[in-house]
C-alpha cells in the first residue's frame, strides 16, 4: 500500500500518500449543530480552533488548551469530549454539537433554551461565566450517561469541568433541577 517516491524529501525517502493532507491548509467538512460547514484549515488545527476562529462559534472556550479544564467541552457524535485535544480534521463524518446548538436541536429556532441552560440561569450556576458553556455541555452528558443520581455522583462525573469562581454547589443544583427534563 505504501507509495514510495524517494525524491520527495521525507527523511526515509517515503513520499506523501495520495490521500495525505496538509501540512498546508486543506478543505475540511464539518457537521456542526446540524449544519454542513466547510473550513480551510491546517491539519494541526484543533476542533476548538476551527469552531472559534473559523466558524465564529465562540461558545466553547479556550481555557487551558491542554485537556485539564473542560471549558472547551463539546459533543462529538453525542459524546462529551475536549475540543482542545481533538483535531478538527478527525471530525469529518462526525456530528459536532456546541452550546450554540443546544437550545434548538431540532433547528426550529424557537428561541427556547435547553432545560439545562434554563436551570443554570435559575440556580445562578455561574459567576464569571467563562466555564459555563463547557459546564452545560458536560452536565447534559452527565445526565444522559446516567450519572446524576445524587450530589456525590454529579461531583465525580463533572470533575472534568473546573470552575475557578467555585460555583460548584449551584452547578450541582442546576443539574439536579434539570435532570428529569434532559
Amino acid at each position: 500500500m505504501t507509495v514510495r517516491t524517494p525524491d520527495t524529501g521525507r527523511a526515509t525517502g517515503t513520499g506523501p500518500e495520495a490521500d495525505e493532507r496538509g501540512p498546508e491548509p486543506v478543505g475540511v467538512r464539518l457537521d456542526v449543530n446540524g449544519v454542513q460547514r466547510h473550513v480551510e484549515i491546517e491539519p494541526r488545527v484543533s476542533l476548538l480552533g476551527a469552531l472559534r476562529d473559523e466558524l465564529q462559534l465562540t461558545g466553547a472556550k479556550r481555557g487551558c488548551d491542554q485537556g485539564t479544564c473542560g471549558a472547551c467541552t463539546v459533543w462529538v457524535d453525542g459524546r462529551r469530549v475536549l475540543a482542545c485535544l481533538t483535531l478538527a480534521i478527525t471530525c469529518e463524518d462526525a456530528e459536532v454539537t456546541t452550546v450554540e446548538g443546544l437550545a434548538t436541536p431540532d433547528g426550529t429556532g424557537d428561541g427556547r433554551l435547553h432545560p439545562m441552560q434554563e436551570e443554570f440561569i435559575r440556580q445562578d450556576a455561574f459567576q464569571c461565566g467563562y466555564c459555563t458553556p463547557g459546564q452545560i455541555m458536560s452536565a447534559v452528558g452527565c445526565v444522559r450517561e446516567g450519572h446524576a443520581g445524587d450530589d456525590g455522583e454529579i461531583k465525580e462525573w463533572m470533575s472534568g469541568n473546573i470552575c475557578r469562581c467555585a460555583a460548584y454547589p449551584h452547578i450541582r443544583a442546576a443539574i439536579r433541577a434539570a435532570r428529569d427534563r434532559v
Binding site: P16, D19, E20, R21, G22, P43
Partner: peptide, 9 residues
C-alpha cells in the same frame, strides 16, 4: 504546535 500532515486509515 508544529505543522503536520494527516492521513486517515
Amino acid at each position: 504546535m508544529r505543522p503536520i500532515s494527516y492521513v486517515r486509515t
